[in-house]
Design a protein around this nucleic acid. Structure first.
Lengths: 241, 241
DNA sequence: CGCAGTTTTGATAAAGCTCAAGATCTGTGG
DNA sequence: CCACAGATCTTGAGCTTTATCAAAACTGCG
């Protein structure tokens, strides 16, 4: 897939210039740390926080639990745009309406902050404005990075990236819980749920991960290389064990 | 692919609530119109404007021509993140370094604006700060929308989306020029160049588009429905005409 | 005209999807 | 505590889409 630009590619030896630093290796320091003020509300597992095309009155910060943002394509397919974990902010829109719906993946507590308060804080205080810009750039970069991994990779790379990303974001150093279903993961990664399931099985059979229900443990540095796209995907086993 | 959430999907009849308004249908009005001040520089076709990991000193606005932003994956595959047309801004980074390189697709004139000037303008003037925030949100949304189309669609949908998006952005009402190669398009859409070529041929054979070299004319509203994901992709012809 | 790069087309193979059936898990009521 | 129902997850078989390899046709330019 190097195409005709192979000549130019030679100018950037992968060893010295790191193309596409994976989010997973990104240091926690240096991230903007916005903290929203507002009412704390609790949502039951599966509850809708807001629906697509609802008025975008509030911005949310996850206190505990997990949120997924979702749209439906005209042909009926579902797209999961992302999962939001503790500390993360979602629901900030450019226009008057939400362009996707948000649902609680499991029991979730959220800080609900009026949109107008954000604008006001940014107008009043230069440092807050700067922090908000930095957060916007970060969220643009994360979206771009995600699509780089998810658009151009194999099922192996996608799932590896997903697991590493989640492990990093939860700061997990051992087993961690995946509160979402295989269907959610599939719609997030652009795969069928069957392929997600199969890929989990292959990782498990190769000793890259261990699973117990929806709990996962990353066992092996090799999964890191797959997730970073550093090596061509390991192929499906010829004979399935 | 509706999965188990089919029940919930029923709550959002596609007819009334439009999931994922395609950029193509988005009105030009309402977009933030930042104009950068600075030196105008000209780049020859293929010239590098900045390389991955270069210091991010400047932000650019396209005066004429077209720019592509590119990264290389560790495995050598190339990713084209986007194409920037007249009026569009690129090169604004959250950190000190550029995270992808930018190259002129054809002869291109750019306005080069020091990064510090942007920060200063945002600090000095509330309205500029507001406009910058709006632009950041827009560019996040466009990235997200693009990945929704490009991650989850077939080759037909990807190419149709690409053509419609470009036609809209150039405000073309007739034939328009694609200055980039099939390789560029392929690396942008996450397809092989052969598949891009074949898909062009199918569109042409079905009377959806006409081509003359790298010039394209959209002939038929049907391509709009494919690009918007409104119908399942038309299948490859059994026997190729 | 002829070369180098690009684009198109063809044949084959691989990755992932669909359909289908079992297995496992979870919550509920007896 | 157990049994059952419904959902979720796993595995299998066949098929579709797209990548890959290969070669021919086209284009622009010296």
């Amino acid at each position: 897939m190097l195409h005709a630009v192979a000549t130019r590619a030679a100018d950037y030896p992968p060893a010295t210039r790191t193309p596409l630093a994976p989010q997973v290796t990104r240091p926690r320091a240096g991230l903007p740390t916005l903290i929203l003020q507002g009412v704390t509300r609790t949502f039951a597992s599966g509850a809708t926080i807001y629906a697509q095309e609802d008025a975008a009155e509030f911005v949310y910060q996850v206190a505990s639990g997990m949120v997924r943002t979702v749209t439906l394509r005209p042909d009926g397919r579902r797209i999961v745009h992302g999962f939001h974990l503790g500390g993360e902010i979602f629901g900030l829109e450019r226009e008057q309406l939400h362009h996707c719906s948000a649902e609680a993946v499991c029991e979730t507590r959220l800080v609900q902050c009026p949109h107008s308060l954000i604008e006001k804080a940014a107008g009043d205080d230069l440092e807050t404005a700067q922090e908000l810009r930095s957060w916007l750039l970060l969220s643009r970069d994360q979206t771009a990075e995600r699509s780089a991994y998810l658009m151009y990779g194999s099922a192996f790379e996608k799932l590896a990236y997903f697991l590493l990303d989640l492990a990093w974001r939860t700061q997990a150093h051992g087993p961690f819980e995946l509160p979402m279903s295989r269907y959610d993961i599939a719609d997030y990664l652009g795969l069928s749920s069957e392929t997600v399931s199969r890929t989990f099985s292959v990782f498990r059979n190769r000793g890259l991960i261990a699973t117990r229900g929806r709990q996962v443990t990353l066992l092996d540095g090799r999964i890191r290389r797959i997730g970073a796209g550093a090596e061509r995907s390991p192929h499906w086993p010829r004979a399935f064990p």
